[in-house]
């Protein structure tokens, strides 16, 4: 943003306010019709379908079942975010320490899953975990079990698969900050007598916090509204906000309630972005 303003200021031949407006018009029209209208339509549904009023919100927020689902969604998102942080940090750290071929190899390992469809990756977990899946077959053959285990449609399965899907976002967020920390800093720390862990704790970790915050916010927000993985790998006991909204929209056809639940989820997301949005570093995500 700052760079853009500086560019405009440095370039007296840049586009004036009117020309700028013309340039941005197409994108704004596209967004207004196919993005803003559908979202406001959802808001409209929530207050008017079937009757005018806040009945849908009373239903959404007053019901024990829906409250339980909302809490479960938040709870699962917290666990998934924590897991991606714990698993992702060492990878980002190693990636920032090695160079050349090793770095490229790690980057490829992180980017292949990122650029593989979420649906394909969720399906892969079904291949692994279903009744006659790879894990069960293996355990049966080795004699560790004599009955196939029920591994799918459980909360744990959804957590593992979501962690798998969202891990690359966390790794890349942290790495993008870690790689900009000058190598001299850890050298200086060790010259001054700090051990490896002490250097990490007092130098690297505090400096990497912007990447951690950005990754945590990004993963948590995506997890809150994640649909595909819970829809495929979850069962009735693992219903999340997203799968509940989907059900109300296409199965129960209760668009008023779907609208109210969507507004609740949207509000929660916007609240998080509003409070912590400054931490989000969207530039260069995934590329």
């Amino acid at each position: 943003m700052a760079a853009a303003t500086a560019n405009a200021a440095a370039n007296p031949r840049g586009f004036g306010p009117r020309a700028s407006l013309v340039l941005i018009l197409p994108v704004m029209l596209l967004l207004a019709v196919f993005f803003v209208l559908p979202l406001t339509g959802l808001l409209d549904q929530s207050f008017r379908s079937p009757d005018l009023g806040i009945a849908n919100y009373v239903r959404a927020l007053g019901s024990d079942l829906y409250m339980k689902i909302l809490l479960r969604t938040v709870w699962l998102s917290v666990i998934v975010t924590a897991l991606t942080l714990v698993l992702g940090y060492p990878v980002a750290l190693t990636m920032s320490r090695v160079s050349g071929r090793m770095q490229l190899a790690i980057a490829v390992c992180v980017l292949i899953p990122l650029w593989t469809s979420v649906l394909v990756r969720s399906y892969a977990w079904i291949v692994l975990l279903q009744r006659r899946g790879i894990v069960n077959e293996f355990l049966l053959q080795t004699g560790l079990i004599d009955q196939p285990l029920r591994l799918l449609y459980r909360e744990g399965t959804v957590i593992v698969a979501m962690t798998h899907v969202l891990l690359p976002f966390m790794i890349l967020s942290i790495y993008s900050v870690l790689r900009s920390i000058p190598k001299d800093l850890s050298m200086a720390a060790s010259n001054l007598g700090a051990g490896g862990f002490s250097t990490f704790r007092h130098v690297i970790w505090p400096l990497s916090l912007p990447g951690v915050y950005s990754g945590v916010l990004m993963v948590f927000i995506i997890a809150l509204g994640f649909y595909i993985t819970p829809a495929l790998l979850g069962g009735p006991e693992t219903l999340m906000m997203s799968t509940l909204i989907g059900q109300q929209t296409t199965e129960t056809l209760d668009w008023g309630l779907a609208g109210a639940l969507s507004v609740v989820l949207l509000g929660l997301t916007l609240l998080l972005v509003g409070l912590f949005g400054r931490a989000l570093r969207l530039e260069g995500k995934g590329i």
Binding site: F35, G41, L42, G225, L266, K285
Partner: peptide, 20 residues
């Protein structure tokens, strides 16, 4: 507004578009 589709929950965008 331009970045919103990246941040807002896709399920909400999907359901909004479905109804519209």
């Amino acid at each position: 507004l331009i970045l919103a589709p990246m941040i807002l929950p896709h399920i909400v965008v999907a359901v909004g578009m479905y109804i519209a």
